[in-house]
Design a protein around this nucleic acid. Sequence first.
DNA 1: TCAAGTACTAACAAAAAAGTAAGTATGAGT
DNA 2: ACTCATACTTACTTTTTTGTTAGTACTTGA
Lengths: 115, 115
Amino acid sequence: MSQKDKLAFGPRCPIRTTLELVGGKWKLLILHTLRGGSYRLSELNKLIPDISEKMLIQELKVLADHDLVVRKNHGEVPPRVDYRLTEKGSLALPLVASMKEFADAYTAMHHAAQG
Amino acid sequence: MSQKDKLAFGPRCPIRTTLELVGGKWKLLILHTLRGGSYRLSELNKLIPDISEKMLIQELKVLADHDLVVRKNHGEVPPRVDYRLTEKGSLALPLVASMKEFADAYTAMHHAAQG
DNA sequence: TCAAGTACTAACAAAAAAGTAAGTATGAGT
DNA sequence: ACTCATACTTACTTTTTTGTTAGTACTTGA
């Protein structure tokens, strides 16, 4: 019996798929930051101050590989590159909205119960 | 300047809060599995075959610490313990629904574009 | 010649998450 | 005495993720 054969909910489980695409510490933060248009690397780094440059580039690359963001090189010197959401990338924004609803509701109940 | 002072979106960022509560490989899978009622450890392990017993127990404990699930010990021998969602825990179910919508829409677009 | 500016790369280190395997405790039944 | 069943615990290893630091490439302009 191979590993995949006993995957809970099967290999096409939407939870697993989502985790592969936007799981981890930074991806949703990046996607959410890109909601308003296109941004240069340095701009993103200012908007998300506690991410390292390496992680930012690395995650942008992964997101681009999955067609969630697009990288546009303007071919100038010094380099000018910017990133924006693709149509697929904006599919992730409702996810962020759900997370906000969850976090807010949880926090409210938590404080109501024992705060 | 402390680390927290430069957290992107601040320390109460809903994305970060959500990741702390239900981030990781297993928590949402467990919560989703518990949607239908209460289950014993061994039942959960059958429903999620590729999780190790250790991870299952460990994650259930973390979820219980955050009041997302409740552990009920029936005080029998051999031990009989079951777990179910709390009210807070069921707040996470819409999150799973959003993930399914995302994954389905992404997959559909992906196949339409290059499948 | 040399600094400035921007995006990116590479090598390495640390930390966090997940996995494996072998115990422990309990009391009923044999 | 000994096994069974169940829920856990402990120690340890491996894998994955994240972080740190020091580069590179390329032109413009002092």
